[in-house]
Design a protein around this nucleic acid. Sequence first.
DNA 1: ATTAAAATTCCGTATTGTGGAATTTATTCT
DNA 2: AGAATAAATTCCACAATACGGAATTTTAAT
Lengths: 245, 245
Amino acid sequence: MIQSIDRAMLIIEVMSDSQKDKWLPAELAEETGLPISTVYRLLQSLELHNLVSQIEHTKQYELGYKWVELGLKKYEKLDIRQVARPILEKLANDVEETVYLNTPNDDVSIIIERIDSPRNVRIIDSIGERIPMNIGAANKTMLAYSPPHNTDALLQRLIPEEAEREQFKQQLRSVKRKGFAISRGEKTEGTLAVGAPIFDFEGTVLGAISIEALAMQTTEEQLDYFIEKVTEAAEEISSAMGQVK
Amino acid sequence: MIQSIDRAMLIIEVMSDSQKDKWLPAELAEETGLPISTVYRLLQSLELHNLVSQIEHTKQYELGYKWVELGLKKYEKLDIRQVARPILEKLANDVEETVYLNTPNDDVSIIIERIDSPRNVRIIDSIGERIPMNIGAANKTMLAYSPPHNTDALLQRLIPEEAEREQFKQQLRSVKRKGFAISRGEKTEGTLAVGAPIFDFEGTVLGAISIEALAMQTTEEQLDYFIEKVTEAAEEISSAMGQVK
DNA sequence: ATTAAAATTCCGTATTGTGGAATTTATTCT
DNA sequence: AGAATAAATTCCACAATACGGAATTTTAAT
C-alpha cells in the first residue's frame, strides 16, 4: 500500500526471520532485493524510531528496543478476561447455558467470568469462587495440559490415596488425548459440565472455559453440540491470546 | 526522515501512550494533527503488516500482534537478561524475596525480568510494567549514574517543582556515593526495595536490579544482608556483561 | 423519509522517496 | 609506504508516490 512502509517491514521481517540477528546494510539489500541506497535510507529512518539500532563498532543493524517496549506493553493488555468475554457471550447464547471462565491458582481454580444464558437463569456458582483443581471439567483440562511435575505435586496433596490418584491420572491422559473434559455431578449434584483449555503463545495453560447444564435435560446430541462449541470457543480465545498457529 | 514512516510511528506512539487502547481513525487524526485521509491510508498499510488491527464491529484500531511477536523474539535474545537470569535466580534464592531486573527507557524503566522467591509468592509487579524513573530504588540507582544532562532534562519533566527537584538530586548524589539505593513504599505501600545498578564495559548504565520485601518483616540486619547481596549480584552481572561483546 | 453528520474513498497534483552514479572509506596488494 | 580495488555511504535530478481537499458513501437523528 504505502511503499516505504512495505519496504521497511520487509527489512524488519528479514531481520527477525532466520537465526542471524545482526545485519550489514549490504546483506539486507541482497536479501530483500532492494537497492542499497534505499536500504540505507530506510534503516536511518527506522533507527530514528528505535525500530532498528546500529551496533556502533561493527556497523551492523539489529532489531531495536521499540519492539520490546511496545510488545511487552501490548502483551500486558492481552487480558484473558477481556479477550474471552465476547467469545463467551456468543457461546452462552449459542448453547443457551451458563458458561464459565476459570484460571488456575495453586491447588484451586478461580472463576473469573461467568456469562448467564438468556434462557437458563439458574445461578449455581459465582465469580470469585474457588474450586479444587481435581473437581470439575474445566479444572481437569487445565491439569491435563500442565507441566507433569506441577501436576504430580498437586495431586499428591489433593488425592492422598495412591490407587485413586493413579486412576485420576488415567482420566487426565484421556482428557489430553481428546482435548476436552466432561464431568457429571462433581461440583453440583444433578449437573454436568464440558470444559476446554486456553493456552498462551507458548502453549502454557492460562485457564479453561466450561459449559454447565442440568444432566437430566441434556440429550446426547446436545452434549456433542456442547463439546463442539466449547472447544471451538476455547481455540478462538487461545488464538486471540496470541497462540501461534 | 521518511515522512510516511515518521507519520506511521506517530500514530503508533499515540496508540501506545495513554490508557486508551482503542482508537477511531478520526480520533487519531485529531490527536496526531494529520489529515484524516492520511490517517486512513497509513492505518490500512499498518494493518497489512499486523502493526495495527481493526476491531471488526466497532471499527476501532488497536496495536497489532506483530509487536508482541517481534517484541518477544527480541526480548528472548536480550543479552542482559540472559546474563542476569542465573545470577538473579541465585539472589532470589539467597535472600528469599522477589527480585527484579529493569532497563531504562526514556522517562520510565521497564521490568524485563522477575524471579519469584521460593518462599514469598507475593507477586506485585509483572514483566513489562513501566515505572517512572524517579520512583523506586532500582530507578534511582540508574538515574544516579546517568549522564547529568540526561538526568537534568528528565527530572525537569518528572518533577516540575524546583525545590522538590533539588532535594531529589541530593538523594541521587547520596545514592551515587553509596552505590545502592533503598526506597520505602514508593511504588507499593508497605514494601521496601534495595536496588543496585548494572554497567557495561564503558561504565554506561544498562539497567538495575532490586530486591523487594515487606517493610514490616524486614529487620535492620536483613536489610544489610540485602544491600550486600544486591550489590554483589549487580557487580557480577556488570562484569559478565563486560565479557559479552 | 429527510437531513445532518460522520466515516471512507477518490484522484489530480506536488512533494516525497527513489536509485544510479558519485564520493568517501576500508582493505589488499606491490 | 602508496596504489589499486572493493565496499560502504551519500548525493541529487527526476518521476513515481504519497498527499489531502473534496466528493461520496454510510450511519444516525428527527
